[in-house]
Design a binder for these strands. Structure first.
Length: 276
DNA sequence: CAAGTTACCTGACGGC
DNA sequence: TGCCGTCAGGTAACTT
């Protein structure tokens, strides 16, 4: 799926097409995503409303209407959003279409159906950080994501640092690719138990995560198999992968070969020589 | 409680 | 060609 950079690219891509538009019609193919599609609530609270804000939090998109309703979209592994004319025939795995007042449709397509849609209204929408995002950690670019914060959470725990970074309660939006890439950049082994990482190393890792994520956003995200942005363009950050998917290939920093192992059930790539 | 495993779903790919 | 196993960017509900 899209990790934070891909979701951010999509967010920036759809925002100018959505702001100021109103939603005229909502259709659904009837299939469940990871959760049921709240199509009745969507129609009740969104049809006829104007879109006033579009933003990202963690890997979730938020489309906010003039009555305070928030439509939350998570893209799962294979979700995508793009705009089509209403006469364009629906594609395979199109699940939801939002028809706008400028005769364009925003279409949610998701092959594996691991994504989800949510509707928040009233208190749930107003206090979204303590309702919907109550267990979501800080954004990686926020000041709350600090070495002190990580040292405290890591105390006495043996979890591998890669699993820790991918835990959304710890920090939002870092998925498998960018966890691998950030740890290579920081020269920290993905298996390293978190309690053994010093304040200085956490600081360095935070800096590396922010650099990698920023570069990926600038590149329009990474295209692994099916990520394309709203304009149907692929991201090209994958050109910059240092370790992800490079098993057996030479490290770009030393002479060793990139290793692959499973950590927390996820493919983990690292240089056994550079990353300690 | 922390950490590891499994399930959800479809499609692409490699081996035979 | 086709069948089968494996793997894929996420998340949460399980189990240990």
């Amino acid at each position: 799926m899209p990790e934070l950079p891909e979701v951010e690219v999509i967010c920036r891509g759809i925002r100018p097409h959505l702001l100021g538009r109103s939603i005229e019609k909502i259709s659904h193919n009837g299939k469940m995503l990871r959760l049921p599609v709240p199509v009745d609530a969507m129609r009740l609270h969104l049809v006829g409303r104007e879109i006033v804000e579009v933003k990202r939090r963690a890997k979730y998109l938020q489309i906010i209407a003039d009555n305070g309703t928030i439509l939350i979209i998570h893209l799962g592994m294979t979700g995508n959003l793009s705009f089509f004319g209403p006469d364009t025939p629906p594609a395979r795995h199109d699940h939801v279409h939002l028809l706008l007042d400028n005769d364009l449709e925003l279409r949610y397509n998701d092959t594996r159906r691991f994504g989800s849609l949510h509707i928040l209204t009233g208190h749930e929408a107003e206090d979204i950080e303590t309702t919907f995002f109550s267990t979501t950690g800080p954004e990686p670019f926020s000041t709350a994501f600090s070495p002190e914060y990580l040292v405290n959470l890591a105390r006495g725990r043996v979890m591998p640092v890669k699993s820790f970074l991918m835990t959304n309660q710890i920090v939002a939006g870092v998925g498998n690719i960018y966890a691998n890439e950030s740890l290579f950049q920081a020269a920290i082994s993905p298996q390293r138990p978190i309690s053994t990482i010093s304040r200085t190393s956490w600081q360095h890792l935070i800096t590396c995560i922010r650099q990698i994520l920023s570069q990926a956003i600038e590149c329009g995200g990474s295209t692994i198999s099916d990520f394309v942005n709203v304009s149907k363009e692929s991201g090209y950050f994958q050109m910059n992968f240092q370790v992800y998917g490079r098993k057996g290939q030479p490290c770009k920093r030393c002479i060793a070969e990139i290793n692959k192992s499973q950590i927390g059930g996820r493919a983990s790539y690292y240089c056994p020589k550079c990353q300690k």
